[in-house]
Design a protein around this nucleic acid. Structure first.
Lengths: 97, 97
DNA sequence: AGCACTATGTTTAGCTT
DNA sequence: AAAGCTAAACATAGTGC
């Protein structure tokens, strides 16, 4: 395992264009519910940002697990938190040969 | 960078329960459009599986990029393809200090 | 093979508790 | 701060070209 077919992605910070258009909506009033189109740039509010980080990290790990399960792929990923916290996903698995 | 707050996920193969319920639908007829709830186990058809791998890998990289952008996190990921192909995402970035 | 479409399942931002 | 909710945004399996 871990031979030949390898893909790597290392991303440090911004990787896509900022996409600065699209305010919350045309009238400027906030939507009451739902997600509300997000702006692809660093979130300014720290509390929201940490919650979003936690949620999205979970989603990312879940997607990675699904990819492995569905396609018989193998993947490894590391996420460096913006805050000074250490944690590991519950589904961690040792890299056995 | 790359200090202190670190999270690691290494997944080799299956990580979740198979979730064997839910055939396509009760009558056995395929849905004509849309996604149709997928079964979380290795896809048997190789052609579909490769397409799914490609699509989901793209989605995974995109999500990782979004996480980095939105939250100022840093992440690295490696995906080992089930087939013998090598490719890299277009948004690859060197790990500069 | 690879791209476009689209209905539907999934994710998640903002709220509430 | 950490869970749970909801609806809008998003991802994507199957399809057609």
């Amino acid at each position: 395992m871990f031979a030949a077919s390898l893909e790597v992605c290392i991303s440090a910070g911004r990787l896509g264009p900022p996409s600065d258009e699209a305010p919350r909506n045309s009238s400027g009033a906030k939507k009451s519910k739902g997600r509300g189109k997000i702006r692809m740039r660093k979130m300014e509010k720290d509390t929201n940002m940490l919650v979003t980080f936690s949620k999205r990290k979970s989603g990312l790990f879940k997607k990675a697990n699904e990819l492995c399960t569905l396609c018989g792929a193998e993947c490894a990923m590391m996420v460096f938190s913006p805050a000074d916290k250490v944690s590991s996903p519950s589904t961690i698995r040792p890299l056995t040969t």
